[in-house]
Design a protein around this nucleic acid. Structure first.
Lengths: 148, 148
DNA sequence: CATATACCTACTATGTCAATAGGTATTTAT
DNA sequence: ATAAATACCTATTGACATAGTAGGTATATG
């Protein structure tokens, strides 16, 4: 399954912000774009969406930037999905035109709804802080590199 | 999460074929398209893909059509996915350009790979026959309608 | 006052999706 | 033999989404 770069970049930005705002300072788009090798102009479209969803807070002006909008324990993967991608947690549209046997509706109930529920449950159970810890455990070296 | 109409139509066709070839006769594209209200010309692009994957067998010529290529117990949802959609069970591409902290790779391992594994496990555990039974149990009336 | 920042809107190039269209080869029924 | 119905193949199209690019405005800070 393919995840859009919007979501991927948004998640990377969230992690970057979480790590680099620990000292109390805001993290600017420029910093994130440089560190994570993401187009700055593209990021500038993504971050306001995360802000509108309440996941980050913005500070305008010189020395401004972003911080988390709530504790990392309360930022869910599902929130990121919903903020950045209309379709990823959306269920299939209701069947357009049914044939004789309502087969389409049956497939919808038996399969797509279950698949979407699985995905949704996973995303609702995954917090940013959990994710940070998981990544950290994977590689101390990697973690050090984040902080540098 | 959105599933392509190719996959949806392919699945509907499989079910239709399974049901209507029980008497030993082949099921033609025309029949399926009519019953399920799917564009016939579009179906004509989908069914050969299912045949190449071994899920159905084709019989050319007058009175020809399709039958299952193997018992319904051995037809997996994952097979349908793989036959009709390159991306649905494909993992994310390997990260293009890593920033300082290999964050992208970490996100890949911690999230996308898990999500894909969940989906893949579900799809590999779901057989066509299971699905037929589930649909049947949902509504006797619906089932009758299939068979008519 | 200069600068660095968030934020906003428009544009573009590329690709994918969902069909549509027309034609060929093959098998069966008559 | 012939006609009809079928699978199969290839090309084309219109709409839409994706992944950016570009330029400009408002705002807070030093």
């Amino acid at each position: 399954m393919r995840v859009s770069t919007r979501v991927e970049y948004g998640l990377m930005a969230l992690v970057d912000i979480a790590i680099h705002s620990e000292n109390g300072e805001s993290v600017s788009t420029t910093e994130i774009a440089d560190r994570q090798k993401i187009s700055q102009k593209y990021l500038e479209q993504i971050l306001p969406q995360l802000r509108q969803a309440g996941l980050i807070k913005a500070q305008k002006g010189l020395r401004g930037g972003y911080r988390l909008g709530k504790p990392a324990e309360e930022v869910l993967l599902a929130d990121v999905f919903n903020a950045l991608d209309d379709s990823i947690l959306a269920e299939m549209e209701s069947p357009r035109e049914e044939g004789d046997g309502a087969l389409r509706g049956c497939i919808n109930e038996c399969l797509w709804e279950k698949i979407n529920k699985n995905l949704s449950d996973f995303a609702k159970g995954k917090t940013l802080s959990e994710f940070l810890i998981e990544c950290r455990n994977k590689s101390i070296r990697g973690w050090d590199m984040y902080v540098i």
